[in-house]
């Protein structure tokens, strides 16, 4: 086994993982929003999607048709905006409906290769966001093993939804973070409350407050809650060359909420790796 910092991380200042034990709580949405917010704040951001069997980020950023290029130094990620780059297995599939039926060892190898062979560019990255699949299995072990030699990393944002069933899985993920020594930046409660567009009544579809209680219980930072906003999905689906996602996002209500959450993380003022 080699004990060295994965090559692609040489010029990365901060690394943030987005984790959740539960699926469909909005890890990819939170990753997307975090990236958009950081870019709006003027940072140079890279996003790595290690959900190999269900990559969603290419769709989220509206770059499904783009391709990865191979250079002499390695893989060149897709440039979404001048200072936002994205790497995902989704770009390597021939057909968007193709399934990637891989057992663990192959997934582990792919993640290793991602960390070794991606060229994030000459400019140092301020933030590298890593979006993960649900669970605590091969992908997570692989990324933890790779990042072991890349400390200090900023840590993990834990995403949950308010209901108990989700909280239970998220507790497992927090235990995982403790075991592999990932600092926990805080918990975001996603999908908390839906405001009816017609009468402004707020309904807690997946109940509410679970994330805040959990962070109190475990003495973790509570970063805030993000309501369900169907407009976000609409933005994602309606983006094109004229309607640029990041411009639409800047004018949405979600931007204000997310900006507050990101400020809480930036305020922790974690040391740069470079």
């Amino acid at each position: 086994m080699e004990y060295e910092i994965p090559q692609s991380l040489n010029k990365v200042k901060h690394i943030i993982l987005i984790l959740s034990g539960k699926g469909g709580v909005g890890k990819s949405s939170v990753t997307t929003q975090t990236a958009l917010t950081l870019v709006s704040k003027g940072y140079n951001v890279g996003v790595l999607d290690i959900d190999l069997t269900g990559p969603s980020l290419p769709r989220m950023f509206g770059v499904e048709n783009k391709q990865i290029h191979q250079s002499t130094q390695g893989w060149v990620p897709v440039q979404v905006y001048p200072n936002l780059k994205l790497m995902s297995l989704g770009f390597l599939l021939k057909n968007r409906g193709d399934s990637v039926v891989w057992r663990g060892p192959k997934k582990t190898a792919m993640i290793k290769q991602f960390l070794k062979d991606i060229v994030w560019g000459n400019e140092p990255l301020d933030y590298l966001l890593i979006d993960t699949p649900p669970g605590t299995s091969d992908e997570h072990i692989a990324i933890a093993e790779e990042l072991r030699f890349a400390q200090p990393i900023d840590g993990a944002i834990i995403v949950t939804t308010p209901q108990l069933v989700a909280i239970n899985d998220v507790k497992k993920e927090i235990n995982f973070c403790k075991k592999v020594n990932f600092n926990i930046l805080g918990i975001i409660e996603n999908m908390s409350g839906f405001i009816c567009p017609s009468c402004k009544e707020c309904t807690n579809i997946f109940s509410s407050g679970g994330g805040e209680l959990l962070s109190k219980d475990l003495e973790l930072t509570y970063l805030g809650n993000v309501p369900i906003d169907p407009k976000f999905v609409e933005m994602i689906e309606s983006q094109n060359e004229d309607n640029i996602l990041i411009e639409m996002y800047k004018n949405s209500e979600l931007e204000v909420i997310m900006s507050g959450i990101i400020d809480k993380i930036l305020k922790q003022d974690l040391p740069s790796r470079v």
Binding site: G21, R103, G104, P105, T108, T136, S137, D138, H140, I141, N168, K171, K172, E173, I174, N175, F176, K179
Partner: peptide, 8 residues
Amino acid sequence: DLAIIWRG
């Protein structure tokens, strides 16, 4: 709450 950190 134990995390099951198992490979495939």
